[in-house]
């Protein structure tokens, strides 16, 4: 017997054939003794299974509160706060990563110490014309004496101020040029802690109501 015949016979036995299939099967059963015999075998098998002893539950399977440790039904707002807390925390972490990534190249490209050629080009161009007698006091604070040609490139006192400002630039630059402003990070931190606190409060109140 082909598998399709077997499936149709089994479904016929259970009354699961559609009208067209049913008519076709009944017609075949009248003309095909093998099919009729196989149907008898399936019917007997089903009858044996249906006649099996019913195993009754050996004990009661009722649950206790201790067994299930029921969790109180939580309002939809709990899920909302929990999600926003997690999302805000993830965003906060992302802002730190982005800021630290952008700060690293800024530090590496910061202007070299004063007198080491880190000044702006326009300043250096004017430095070349500075009087020689002004060079000594300018280079005195440096730990390493400058070679004569480099010393001549040192800026005049008037030019020193803007250059010094640029020298201290990187510290301000990392905060001022961060892709994510600190105010945003503070807001995200507040959102994180606020959402988590609200979710915990909702859960606590729901549990308290549940215990009553």
């Amino acid at each position: 017997m082909i598998p399709r015949d077997l499936e149709e016979l089994s479904a016929y036995l259970d009354g699961q054939l559609g009208p067209a299939e049913l008519a076709r099967m009944e017609s075949r059963l009248q003309h095909e003794p093998d099919l009729e015999s196989a149907l008898g075998g399936l019917r007997s098998t089903r009858a044996v299974l249906r006649g099996m002893v019913v195993r009754k539950a050996p004990r009661n399977f009722t649950l206790t509160h201790a067994l299930v440790r029921p969790r109180p039904p939580l309002p939809a707002s709990y899920g909302l706060f929990r999600f926003s807390g997690v999302a805000a925390a993830a965003l906060l972490a992302l802002t730190y990563v982005l800021n630290s990534l952008s700060a690293a190249p800024a530090t590496m490209s910061a202007p070299a110490p004063f007198g080491m050629g880190g000044g702006a080009p326009e300043v250096l161009a004017e430095e070349a014309t500075a009087p020689a007698d002004l060079q000594a006091p300018m280079t005195a604070p440096l730990a390493t004496p400058l070679p004569a040609d480099m010393a001549q490139m040192a800026p005049t006192p008037e030019q020193k101020a803007p250059a010094a400002e640029r020298a201290t630039g990187p510290e301000w630059g990392s905060a001022a040029t961060s892709p994510i402003p600190i105010a945003w990070q503070v807001a995200l931190a507040l959102l994180t802690f606020g959402s988590i606190a609200a979710a915990l409060a909702i859960r606590y109140l729901a549990a308290a109501r549940w215990r009553k």
Partner: peptide, 24 residues
């Protein structure tokens, strides 16, 4: 809604079916 007594009433109705299925 979390009512364990109601669930236990269902357990008592179906435990023979459930146990017999598992056993077979």
């Amino acid at each position: 809604g979390g009512n364990l007594d109601s669930f236990n009433a269902l357990v008592l109705s179906y435990q023979d079916h459930v146990f017999n299925t598992a056993f077979r």
